[in-house]
Amino acid sequence: MVLLGTPNPESSRLVALTLTEGDPTWAGPLAGVRLELPVFHITEESIKAQVPPEVYEAQVGLAEAVLDTRAIRETLEDVRARAGAGAKEETA
């Protein structure tokens, strides 16, 4: 599993797609490589709940306060759904 600390939905999508379907820009060595790794952002509730609150506040609190966490979460949910669909197609 890969945990992201990306600053916006666009960069989250770029990295997440690279780690699932392969580099969408076809720029790097992961172009065309389907790693299909589960990708989450540090600000997603399911991740945040696993971090001691005082550690989370000290390390991530300020960034979380200014990031568009909802859009980032929706972006990653979309990428995970795509990856899941792709995985099903391949096994079907």
Binding site: T6, P7, N8, E10, S11, L14, V15, L62, A63, A65, V66, L67
Partner: peptide, 19 residues
């Protein structure tokens, strides 16, 4: 995909001021 670096820095400084 690197975002708006200064804007993020300024928002964090402002959040620090708010905190």
């Amino acid at each position: 995909g690197s975002g708006d670096v200064p804007r993020l820095n300024y928002r964090m400084l402002a959040a620090l001021a708010a905190g």
